[in-house]
Amino acid sequence: NKEKKVFISLVGSRGLGCSISSGPIQKPGIFISHVKPGSLSAEVGLEIGDQIVEVNGVDFSNLDHKEAVNVLKSSRSLTISIVAAAGRE
Rank of each mutant, 00 (worst) to 15 (best):
Asp50Ile: 01
Arg88Ile: 11
Gln51Pro: 01
Ser39Met: 01
Val35Met: 04
Ser22Phe: 07
Glu3Phe: 15
His34Tyr: 13
Val55Ala: 08
Val35Phe: 00
Ala85Pro: 13
Ile82Gln: 04
Lys4Tyr: 11
Pro24Ala: 09
Pro24Asn: 10
Ser77Trp: 06
Val83Asp: 07
Asn1Asp: 15
Ala42Tyr: 10
Val35Ser: 00
Asn62Ile: 08
Thr79Arg: 12
Lys66Pro: 07
Gly29Ile: 02
Ser22Trp: 05
His34Met: 08
Lys4Val: 04
Leu16Ala: 04
Leu16Ser: 03
Ala85Leu: 08
Gln51Asn: 04
Val53Phe: 08
Ile25Leu: 12
Ala42Met: 08
Gly12Cys: 06
Ala42Ser: 10
Ala85Val: 08
Asp59Pro: 12
Cys18Lys: 01
Ser77Gln: 14
Phe31Ala: 00
Asp64Gly: 08
Val6His: 15
Lys2Asn: 08
Ser77Asp: 14
Asp59Cys: 09
Arg14Met: 08
Ile30Met: 08
Ala42Leu: 01
Cys18Asp: 02
Lys27Glu: 12
Ile52Thr: 02
Gly45His: 02
Gly15Arg: 09
Gly17Trp: 01
Ile30Glu: 04
Ser77Gly: 07
Lys2Ser: 08
Ala42Cys: 07
Ile82Leu: 15
Asp59Ile: 06
Gly87Pro: 13
Pro28Ser: 08
Ile52Ala: 00
Val44Asp: 02
Glu54Cys: 10
Ser13Leu: 06
Glu54Thr: 10
Val44Ile: 10
Lys4Glu: 04
Gly15Met: 08
Glu89Gly: 12
Gly45Thr: 00
Gln51Thr: 01
His34Cys: 09
Ala84Arg: 15
Val55Lys: 01
Gly23Tyr: 06
Val55Cys: 13
Ile48Glu: 13
Thr79Asp: 14
Ile32Ala: 02
Val55Ile: 06
Ala86Glu: 15
Ala86Ile: 08
Lys36Leu: 13
Ile82Gly: 04
Glu43Ile: 05
Lys36Thr: 15
Leu46His: 03
Val83Met: 11
Asn70Tyr: 15
Val44Gly: 06
Lys5Leu: 05
Phe60Ile: 06
Lys4Pro: 00
Ala86Pro: 15
Gly15Val: 08
Gly29Glu: 03
Ile25Arg: 11
Ile48Tyr: 06
Gln51Ala: 03
Ser22Arg: 11
Ala42Thr: 05
Leu78Trp: 05
Lys2Glu: 02
Ile52Asp: 01
His34Lys: 10
Gly45Ser: 01
Ile52Glu: 04
Asn70Ser: 15
Ile32Val: 11
Asp50Cys: 02
Lys27Tyr: 08
Leu16Met: 08
Ser81Cys: 10
Ser77Ala: 12
Glu43Phe: 04
Phe31Pro: 03
Ile20Ala: 00
Val35Asp: 00
Phe60Asp: 00
Gly38Met: 07
Lys36Cys: 11
Arg88Glu: 14
Ile20Met: 04
Ile48Phe: 06
Glu3Ser: 13
Pro28Thr: 07
Glu89Arg: 09
Ile80Pro: 03
Ala86Asn: 14
Ser39Phe: 02
Gly29Ala: 02
Ile32Tyr: 02
Gly87Arg: 10
Gly49Asn: 06
Val44Cys: 13
Gly23Glu: 06
Asp50Lys: 01
Ile32Pro: 01
Thr79Cys: 10
Leu46Pro: 01
Asp59Trp: 03
Asn62Gln: 14
Gly87Glu: 14
Gly17His: 02
Gly15Cys: 11
Ser41Val: 06
Ile80Phe: 07
Gly23Trp: 05
Glu54Phe: 05
Leu16Trp: 02
Asn62Leu: 10
Val55Asn: 02
Ile25Thr: 15
Ile25Lys: 14
